[in-house]
Write a protein that binds this DNA or RNA. Structure first.
Lengths: 336, 336
DNA sequence: ATTCCCCATGATAGCGCTAACATTCGGACA
DNA sequence: TGTCCGAATGTTAGCGCTATCATGGGGAAT
């Protein structure tokens, strides 16, 4: 009575059963129940069976909040990404949680939306849940954020970059060199008028810098840079703002594909090989989609899931190398 | 000494400072510090300033684990999705966390990988963290999972479907009717030989059923169904297994785009309008990419982020309608 | 003055669990 | 036969915080 949810024969009362409720029912002390849950080998088979029966009958679900407080272990990791939607970071989250979940860790996910203030708030929110480690994309944008992490005394893994003075561990690649690689490729294939399109987030900017520096070092005219909104639609119209440009490095594959849609409308896209393209296009991220479209998209291939898995490993193992360069690969297809 | 991390002038000792450490430093009782953190209006401005100064000096970060245990409020929600990578569910996670994070809720993310056993394990793991609510894609695959959720006595939101006997709340759309809509569209445009490609997960299967039922009801030959791996690459070769088919409904846009890549290789794709396509293709999800490729992809448009935001709302408000149909829309472009 | 009330603060008792240290008991071993 | 040891279980004391119920000390109202 009083509850509209009673439905099984096993009494489902008002409140969630606790360890000691199970203990009472099984006729043991609560620490024994605790052991059945966490260290079953320490409990005699018969006792264990009795306790397990009581747990089943009561529908006992352990309270990890209390367990975490008592043991000072939350078995959780905080994950901070700029955004999870339509993005390569989803692969990283997938990779790291595939590694961590089987080990009993939970992932607490937060998004900064490329906003420094929100990033700081999210970092503080994550830390107040006392995760065993923090994995984030990039580095904290503010000194406050950095200080927060440095004082947290847990493993911190920065990803998707190789910061010079990391807080703790790093799993990423060299965005600057990625920019250099694309510029070199364009120049080797006779392109003269380069441009970069994409966001102005730290990683995009680093790609731009490498791209620009290499172009200048090779004596080309200064490449152009077009900063776009985060969604790819803006990139469709981008070529109108880039007259005379014959090679474009897009900060990610979505922008690259959007840009190609614009080229197509302008009659500047061929189904032939890269050499036939009036405007060469290279993206970054190696989306599956880029392989499927026509002309297929050349891209800097980065293994987002490997970054995630490596980051997870870095949170688990304290010793060993704390700075892992996963590298990247220039994959040439038909777009440039 | 003994620590290699001391660096600020403010003493950063071995362990994280607690409420009572702050209290001692500020010369107040710990409950007052607690009030400064949670209910600042109850504290006199001068006292508050003194406490805030002490918090800053000690680098105090509240321990929400302890707070959650004491107050029986974790301010977290559990989110269970099949997968977060390369998928439309990322939009849903984004949508719900955009709504929940500003309110102080954390998102605990788990992935089932379309595996019933793993789903059950993840549900149990989530529940043991005592979230205020659970939001999941679809319904639990097993009775065990359903029972777990029914006994949890927290809001449960099932999404991306409209189950007949929901556990609690629902934010989704009618996958069966989506299948019907695509079949109707194909038939109205004179297509005779229909096929469905995609996964055999519950939602995909429901789409298939609607698609099949409507085709049969209209007197067409039984449509074919090709079950594919989750990645789109498999769909590239799919058309070879579908001789004579002139209209294909792909369970998601990625498969649709992959299938179109196969059609292109086979010379069965035109840059013209839908009527000119030897094989009409309709996807589901309305990926931005589908709008950008050529021919542009017709699709069932579903607002993944709206599903997420709606689900978040349903976890917060107990009263009101608990079954929200977000609908879908058949968006016709050039592919079919 | 006295009463009342509200504002600011404090003392106390847990939340549900686990770490750390008993305790008990039966058998192996000398 | 006594000693020792390990296996199985229990006792105790918190983890860091918050809910709840005091407490004291001004005004405002009478």
């Amino acid at each position: 009575m009083g509850s509209e949810l009673t439905e099984t024969n096993t009494s489902s009362d008002e409140v969630a059963p606790t360890l000691s409720a199970v203990a009472k029912r099984a006729g043991v002390s609560s620490i024994t129940v605790s052991r059945v849950v966490r260290l079953p080998d320490l409990v005699a088979p018969e006792t264990r069976a009795r306790v397990e029966k009581a747990m089943r009958e009561l529908g006992y679900v352990p309270n990890l909040v209390a367990g975490a407080l008592a043991s000072a272990k939350t078995n959780s990791v905080g994950v901070l990404v700029p955004t999870i939607a339509n993005s390569i970071f989803a692969d990283t989250v997938q990779g790291l949680s595939d590694k961590l979940e089987p080990l009993g860790y939970s992932v607490i996910l937060a998004q900064s939306r490329y906003d420094a203030a929100r990033e700081d708030r999210m970092l503080a929110a994550l830390l107040s849940r006392r995760p065993e480690a923090i994995i984030m994309v990039g580095s904290p944008a503010t000194e406050d954020g950095k200080r927060l992490l440095r004082h947290a005394r847990i493993p911190i893994v920065e990803t998707w970059e190789l910061p010079i003075d990391p807080i703790d561990a790093v799993a990423g690649f060299d965005n600057y060199q990625a920019g250099v690689a694309v510029a070199r490729h364009f120049i080797e294939h006779g392109r003269q008028h380069l441009a970069f399109i994409g966001g102005d987030d730290p990683r995009g900017t680093r790609r731009w810098l490498g791209f620009q520096d290499h172009a200048l070092a090779c004596g080309l005219q200064p490449p152009r840079r077009l900063i776009l909104e985060r969604n790819a639609s803006g990139s469709v119209a981008a070529h109108a703002n880039l007259p005379g440009v014959d090679a474009v490095f897009a900060a990610n594959d979505a922008h690259a594909i959007g840009f190609m849609a614009g080229l197509r409308k302008a009659g500047l896209l061929r189904d032939g090989p890269a050499a036939a393209q009036p405007v060469a296009v290279v993206g970054l991220g190696d989306l599956e989609m880029g392989r499927l479209i026509s002309p297929s998209l050349s891209t800097i291939s980065v293994h987002g899931d490997a970054i995630g898995r490596t980051a997870a490993t870095l949170t688990l193992e304290r010793g060993g190398e704390r700075r892992i360069d996963l590298g990247f690969e220039l994959v040439l297809r038909d777009s440039g």
